[in-house]
């Protein structure tokens, strides 16, 4: 028993998805170019502008396409048209299409039953999944009459209804209103903390940032960077960080901090100072000491480029 448990643990600990030097062409157009990536448990954001290759990557890992070159493994197996893998993953496509002649509950039931669940179980899971995405009261409504947001919720519902280990959500916030976005962001975070491997794509950077700190940046078919936002930012330390500090005496603060070794420049405004620094860790330590010593009152400070937009801008530029 213990041996079996150990094996299971080992299997669970391995990344759900491993891509090794994967390239994919659409005729003469390259969709992915020599991509190597690993997706582990928790939420990973796949970021990039439209046409970057995110959907291609998702189609490859959900077994809809085979790569032109390289190796895609999901749970250690080739996913393309492989039922042994497909039963363990859920995919919400980017496009809006549903079976419009069916109602929401029947849509989910059909997919669950088709995917291997007995009718009674499929019905129960369909109802539970509809409730999870906030469509409990719309289950009997025809999909053709669904709004954009409802269609998005239903696509997510069919991806999670069978409680798969790997959940791949292509632009899951598209078409949702602010409340819907908040709910789906919470749902995705919950799936991640619940032990699922969730891969979520997007191009609205601050929204992806709310779902996860772990990202892969894709641009023109290549992975520009991967890791946590902090890791990526640290890897870019050759570029200066920008720090904004709000204080009543920006000139005095600038004088104190310009003596620090990692501070390259400072711009002073009415109630704030903006610093360019090469070592943000030391800079923040020094700032904390100045505040603690009572030399200066600092109302707030922030690293203005420690967010996805800034990182993305750096890398794409």
């Amino acid at each position: 028993m213990s041996g079996a448990a150990t094996e299971t643990d080992a299997a669970v600990a391995e990344p759900a998805v491993v891509l090794e030097r994967v390239s994919h062409w659409y005729g003469a157009v390259i969709g992915l170019n020599d991509v190597s990536l690993r997706f582990e448990r928790g939420v990973t954001g796949l970021l990039g502008p439209n046409g970057a290759g995110k959907s291609t990557l998702m189609r490859l890992m959900t077994g809809q396409m085979a790569p032109s070159q390289g190796d895609v493994r999901v749970f250690g197996q080739l996913p393309f048209a492989n039922p042994a893998v497909l039963g363990r993953l859920g995919h919400s496509p980017e496009h809006e299409q549903l079976w419009d002649h069916l109602d929401g509950a029947a849509h989910l039931f059909a997919l669950l039953h088709y995917g291997g669940f007995p009718a009674a179980d499929a019905r129960e899971r369909a109802a539970r999944s509809l409730a999870r995405v906030g469509l409990a009261s719309a289950g009997s409504k025809k999909c053709g009459a669904y709004s954009k947001g409802m269609r998005q919720r239903l696509r997510i519902a069919q991806a999670i209804a069978h409680d798969p280990e790997l959940i791949v959500l292509d632009e899951p916030l598209n078409g949702l209103d602010p409340v819907g976005r908040r709910e789906i962001i919470d749902l995705v975070r919950g799936l991640g903390t619940g032990g699922h491997t969730v891969v979520v794509s997007g191009h609205v950077l601050h929204e992806v940032e709310k779902m996860t700190r772990r990202i892969a940046l894709v641009h023109k078919g290549r992975v520009l960077a991967e890791g946590t936002i902090d890791e990526i930012r640290r890897a870019l330390d050759q570029r200066p960080h920008h720090v904004r500090v709000a204080t009543d005496d920006p000139r005095g603060l600038a004088r104190l901090l310009l003596e620090e070794p990692g501070v390259l420049s400072v711009r002073v405004a009415a109630a704030e100072a903006r610093f360019e620094v090469t070592d943000p860790g030391s800079f923040f330590d020094r700032l904390a000491r100045i505040t603690a010593d009572g030399h200066m009152v600092v109302r707030e400070y922030e690293s203005t480029d420690d967010n996805l937009q800034a990182i993305f801008d750096y890398l794409v530029a």
Partner: peptide, 20 residues
């Protein structure tokens, strides 16, 4: 990222639904 360990029954590949 740390995540809670799922129950083994949910994650057993043998229990994943599939059709012959």
């Amino acid at each position: 990222m740390t995540t809670s360990r799922p129950s083994s029954t949910t994650w057993s590949p043998e229990l994943a639904p599939r059709r012959g």
